[in-house]
Design a protein around this nucleic acid. Structure first.
Lengths: 203, 203
DNA sequence: CATACTTTTGACCATTCGGTTAAACTTGAT
DNA sequence: ATCAAGTTTAACCGAATGGTCAAAAGTATG
């Protein structure tokens, strides 16, 4: 594989990422991706046989990128409160740089739930949660979050961070009717979400 | 317009709703909709000239149905706490009966933000929020939610209710790796979300 | 330079898709 | 029964789409 190969494959991958993020699997056109990459359409099929293979490569990369951002929650050595503050600060900053990711990932998973299985194949959810619970047993007890409530808490935290981006179009439209601007709203959210969640679980 | 007319137009609309919810605008096929409705494809174009017109009719109906469910928040005559409990109970029950709505609406808005403008044309967001704030001034003051924090609070409430459905595919995949089942998780959420939000804003 | 191998291209193909047309059918009024 | 209007259908159309192919261009090796 020469250096030029990598350049081409990377150009294709980047162009595909961009177009798929914008249009989704169904709305994306191979010709459009080829144009974005500045190459011939046949060359697309030379590197990635089918649209489905190309999409899958892009989807896996993006979905992994998103899921990876939840990792610190499970291994940072912090108090629960610090962990929550750290998470929202880092995660919302990340989403601000990649605002199209949530809508894309969630939508494509709903459209084809099989895709997510490959992603979670090697993830042991049960033990991750057990680990998290043991880590913060005393704190969670002090609040009133039982182990079987962890899924509710975790999805609530995810929701607080991800939802504003998944619903970006709607929220932007609503905010545009007020004096608030989306980026300010998001900047504010890092703090608000953390306070909100911490207060929610504090007895 | 005869009785049969209405039947046909309704059959088409229902079939279109079903297919669009499943596949989205880009993934849906006119032939597929015709088959679902048990009619000829040309008849589709007889009642709705183009795919775009048909989609728009369906989208407007669904989006209105969703937005309408937020209305009680602004006019029910209840304390803030009761209002929050009432909202989550009613809203999650509604989404449980229409689980594909959130992903569909949010995605199509992101895909084409123009569509939402027609929806919000006659909605005076600013005065709705002012009204809500005046209604619960004393309570919101007692907690520490200032008027300019209302957007954060409102989107958080929406997120708590809507996100589990917008991310249904992902959450189902994760829960399937534990002993929890999605419907139980959702049932539990009516209570959890209300407690969570009320506690979050309680000083 | 010659050979073998990989990369890139333009032309092409089969199928699918949204949409049209003209004719057949139904219905309701006279 | 006849006629006019609306309704439904089968057949068809042009454009777009994912994908292929054979040849050309480029590159490394002897």
């Amino acid at each position: 594989m020469t250096d030029n190969d990598k350049q081409t494959e990377e150009k294709i991958f980047d162009a595909a990422t961009d177009v798929f993020l914008d249009k989704g699997m169904d709305g994306a056109r191979m010709q459009d991706i080829a144009n974005h990459a500045g190459i011939n359409k046949a060359l697309l099929h030379y590197y990635y046989r089918t649209k489905d293979q190309l999409f899958d490569a892009v989807f896996q990369m993006i979905a992994k990128k998103m899921l990876k951002k939840f990792a610190p929650v499970f291994d940072e050595n912090l108090t629960l409160e610090d962990k929550i503050r750290f998470f929202f600060r880092e995660h919302i900053t990340f989403l601000l740089e990649n605002p199209r990711l949530p809508a894309f990932v969630l939508n494509e998973i709903n459209r084809n739930p099989e895709r997510v299985k490959k992603l979670l194949k090697n993830v042991d959810v049960e033990s991750l949660w057990k680990k998290l619970y043991e880590q913060h047993k005393t704190e969670l007890d002090k609040y009133n979050v039982s182990e079987k409530m962890l899924p509710q808490l975790m999805t609530s935290i995810a929701a607080m961070s991800v939802f504003p981006f998944a619903a970006k179009g709607l929220i932007e439209a609503i905010l545009s009717k007020t004096s608030i601007n989306f980026n300010d709203y998001i900047e504010e959210r890092k703090q608000f979400a953390a306070d909100f969640v911490i207060n929610a679980i504090t007895k």
